[in-house]
């Protein structure tokens, strides 16, 4: 999806304020705020209504979740470096960092798969109660976002080997992918606090 859409077809447009793709991505992220806002709202509303229906502290492993939070934050750091490298035109450094991001993203997904499997084993499924429904759907949607991001970055990594990347256009493409990745990270920051940590107070 690196160049899903063409850039402008106007040759040098005077009122151009910002790159088309970047603006599109930020709008998408604004929209995605509402998307995750609705999911997190649903979860917290049902937690507020039925606090006694389920005791997640017995199930949650805060160490594991903190670890995956840390992993995701560090992947965000590497992503920022990858974008920076691309802007400087340093393809090698870009590849190194992107591999790191992909690796950390996969670790995060692994943690999530392990967590889901563990929870299901302990008896919490989608249909157990409202907690199961909201929790799996919310974190699952986030996981799908991570998976799409990882897939996108893998595509970019291979694309960088084709020699077709040029410093100008591809820097924007990488930056847009980076914006997406960081957004996935900040959603997790919110989920980590609002869904996991708060249960332990």
């Amino acid at each position: 999806m690196s160049d899903t859409a063409t850039a402008s077809h106007e040759d040098g447009h005077a009122s151009l304020i910002i790159d088309n793709k970047k603006l599109l991505m930020w709008l998408f992220l604004g929209s995605d705020c509402m998307f995750f806002g609705t999911l997190i709202s649903t979860h917290l509303i049902y937690r507020k209504l039925y606090p006694e229906s389920f005791e997640p502290t017995a199930l949650f492993s805060l160490e594991l979740t903190s670890f995956s939070t840390f992993i995701l934050l560090m992947s965000s750091f590497l992503m920022a470096l990858a974008v920076s490298a691309m802007h400087k035109g340093e393809l090698k450094s870009f590849r190194r960092n992107v591999i790191g991001v992909i690796f950390f993203g996969l670790i995060f997904l692994g943690c999530q798969v392990y967590e889901f499997a563990h929870f299901v084993h302990e008896g919490l499924t989608l249909s157990t109660n409202t907690f199961g429904s909201t929790f799996y759907m919310m974190t699952g949607t986030h996981g799908v976002h991570v998976a799409i991001g990882v897939f996108w970055l893998i595509c970019m990594y291979f694309y960088s080997h084709t020699g077709k990347m040029d410093a100008h256009e591809s820097a924007i493409d990488v930056e847009v992918a980076g914006l997406y990745w960081h957004f996935v990270d900040i959603v997790w920051i919110v989920i980590f606090t609002a869904v996991y940590l708060i249960e332990f107070i």
Partner: peptide, 25 residues
């Protein structure tokens, strides 16, 4: 990380509007 302070204000507006509506809701 997302360069928002280095970037144009309109991006902050685009994202901020979504964020504000989501938070308010």
């Amino acid at each position: 990380f997302m360069h928002l302070i280095y970037d144009k204000l309109i991006l902050t507006l685009a994202f901020g509007t979504g964020m504000a509506i989501a938070t308010g809701t």
